[in-house]
Design a protein around this nucleic acid. Structure first.
Lengths: 196, 196
DNA sequence: TTTTATTGATTGACGCGTCAATAAAAAATA
DNA sequence: TATTTTTTATTGACGCGTCAATCAATAAAA
């Protein structure tokens, strides 16, 4: 009983299914049937809309990146000072929407897949550059450019590192602790003094 | 023309081949034939010595961990002060032996695989705990325990994050810069003052 | 009647793991 | 010492399962 205008609905459902499948298996080694099943359709339909598995995975990563960007823009809207812009980036990275097992597993898996796929690598480079420039947009108002650059680099590495360690379910347990760690680093660098 | 006592030689060759294969493909999606071919033997022989692919991969990760540990012990031998112990951990992490594309790719790939395999996860937890305790062995001589713990956590995350970013071949280009970043963080935390 | 939505069945490739077979070294036996 | 037997090293061929991708067929909306 085909209903008209299903394409966007199915696309979205398949992307969501891909994220949850990756989250559960912990890698991109998920079959098209598995994904399609979760989305409530046949694997043939997934191929119909996305052509090949690569493209579905690519669309999924792009979707995750887009959501991260949307959240960041929104948070920037509420940030009045440069310092708050920096904190906004950190807060979004560890927000409930972003810092959940599914998304973390996806990030990790896509990092690996990026070694093979040039297109995915390009996508992740965009993320890296965007993260850097988002941090810089606040930091340049506080530090000289050269040092702002170094702090941005370290902060980005710190965020990525905390994501990985979370994937291992070892070390950093919750988002609060992660935010505290990064903020502590930033406070130290920006005020020259650490927390008690 | 079978020669006697080949087992240790083949095992080592297969592990080395696994590392280089993973390094080239950038993931654990390497076939047994590919690995065996690089080691100059048939895939059947790889199965003969390791039983299954899982076990070969497991042995490979264990080998990488063991080498890291050896290097760290050696570096500790040359460290006179607590501060030097901390720097030794950092230096080894970014040494020529450890911070090379092959090894970095392997780390990343194994992190992903650890989501599926409980045994691999256990192995990586051992690494995480060992890294933490290695850092603590120096930090506890400088900072109060609670703060030492936080600094160790952040340093570990920083190291892991710099590894990932190196895998992307974006951001941090060389080991020197990576070491400088981590040392700068440590200096700031330990002296309450950042580099000029 | 053309377009859109959908699927079951099928194909073709690929890769892990097994097995029987071969050959040389080592050990045991005569 | 000469021989037979056992152990170790090694591989080619193959079966079996899995999975991505295709295709022909069905059915409802336009």
């Amino acid at each position: 009983m085909p209903k008209i205008g299903m394409e966007p609905v199915r696309r979205r459902a398949l992307i969501d299914a891909t994220i949850s499948a990756i989250g559960e298996r912990g890698s991109l080694d998920v079959t098209m049937s598995e994904i399609a099943g979760r989305a409530g359709v046949s694997s043939a339909l997934a191929h119909h809309y996305f052509g090949a598995k690569d493209e579905l995975l690519f669309a999924t990563m792009r979707h995750i990146l887009a959501e991260l960007n949307t959240d960041t823009r929104r948070a920037f809207g509420l940030a009045a000072t440069p310092r708050q812009r920096v904190s906004a980036v950190v807060a979004v990275s560890f927000s409930d929407e972003q810092f959940q097992p599914q998304i973390i597993a996806a990030w990790l898996a896509f990092y690996v897949e990026a070694q093979k796929s040039m297109e995915l690598r390009r996508l992740l480079r965009i993320y890296a550059r965007r993260l850097h420039s988002n941090l810089m947009s606040g930091l340049t108002g506080i530090l000289p450019r050269a040092e702002a650059d170094r702090v941005a680099e370290a902060t980005a590495a710190l965020i990525d590192g905390l994501y990985i360690r979370r994937a291992l379910k070892d070390g950093v347990p919750d988002a609060q602790t992660a935010i505290a760690l990064v903020e502590d680093y930033l406070e130290t660098k920006l005020n020259g003094r650490s927390l008690p």
